[in-house]
Simulated assay, not measured.
Amino acid sequence: MPRENYRERLDDLRDGVVGMGDTVCDRLDDAVEAAVSGDDDLARSVIEGDHEVNETYLALEDECTELLALQQPVAGDLRLVAASFKIITDLERVADLATNLADYGGPEGGVHPAVDVRRLGEAAREMVADAVAAYAARDPDACRDIAARNDDFDERCRRASEAVVRELLEADRARTEARDADGDADGGATDDEALEASLDEVSQALLAVRDLERIADHAVNIAARTLYMVENDDELIY
């Protein structure tokens, strides 16, 4: 392969990764909206569109494999191809998590109100978008900034999870006190049904928080691979 064509393929690979990142961020936007609003049509669109992300992933994976096998790149070129290979894997997993989020809203409405899915989702999406932008710009400072922001995001997720569990406990306590005050022994079955519904809602909310936290972790992975690509520095890889 002529070197001019080789350089073009490296540029095309980089552009393809950035394009995949843009698509995944758009899907994540829609997933968060579906989770907040309970929009079943939007959720279905996110879920059914996941195959397009998978197809892009497979095409870019093939390109990375061919470049490694046919060109045997070294130094910076090798790090570019290897980082791109890892980054598209993280982006594909973000898209999978987006399909989970889209499904959490359900036909009855959005995720438990104790979880501010919109703000958490916007923050996670921003981290992914910034990580992809850092890859495109080869910006090591942006990579380190994304990793530093993750601690704050993890703390926000922890507080959200605690708030959900706290509301569940308080609601169950209130039901128990109301039943005891009324002396209504026959209300136990109704209370059990209400508790089961609350547990389902809480479980869904906790899963949403977990998936948002994982999305942010994938953003850090992208930043880590980019930093290694640019500076041969593995400090963020874990």
Rank of each mutant, 00 (worst) to 15 (best):
E162V: 08
D152P: 01
E167M: 04
V132C: 09
R156D: 12
E126V: 12
L120C: 02
D152T: 15
G110P: 02
L101N: 05
E162R: 13
V111E: 07
M127A: 10
A163S: 15
R166P: 01
V128K: 12
A136C: 12
A133M: 11
R144T: 05
D103I: 02
A131S: 15
A131W: 08
A134K: 10
R138A: 14
I146Y: 03
A163W: 14
A142P: 04
G105R: 04
C157N: 02
V165S: 10
A137H: 11
S161W: 05
P113S: 03
P113E: 10
H112G: 03
A129I: 12
F153C: 07
C157Y: 07
P107V: 03
A142L: 06
E167A: 06
N100Y: 09
A147F: 01
V111R: 09
A137G: 11
R158W: 07
R166Q: 12
V165Q: 13
G105E: 04
G105F: 00
E122M: 07
D139C: 10
D152F: 07
V165L: 15
V128P: 00
A137E: 15
L97N: 02
V111S: 09
D152L: 06
A147M: 01
R159C: 00
D141S: 14
D139A: 11
A98Q: 05
P140I: 09
I146Q: 00
R166M: 00
A137N: 14
A148G: 07
R158E: 07
D145E: 13
D103E: 15
D96T: 09
P140T: 10
T99Y: 01
A123G: 00
L101W: 01
L120K: 06
R144N: 02
A129R: 15
R159K: 06
I146W: 00
R158H: 07
R119H: 05
H112N: 05
A163R: 15
L101V: 05
V128H: 08
D130W: 10
A102G: 01
V164P: 09
G121R: 07
V117H: 12
R125E: 05
R159W: 05
N100C: 04
V111H: 09
G106S: 00
A98W: 02
A133L: 11
R125Q: 11
G106T: 00
N150C: 10
P107H: 05
G121E: 04
R149I: 08
A163D: 15
D154M: 12
R125A: 06
D103S: 14
A142V: 03
E162A: 11
V115Y: 08
R138V: 03
P140Q: 11
R138P: 02
L97W: 01
G106M: 01
V132F: 07
A137T: 14
P107W: 00
D130Q: 15
A98G: 06
A148R: 11
F153V: 13
D96M: 05
A160T: 02
G109E: 05
Y104A: 03
R119V: 02
D96E: 05
V117L: 11
A134I: 13
E126C: 08
L97C: 00
G109W: 04
A136E: 15
C143T: 11
R119A: 03
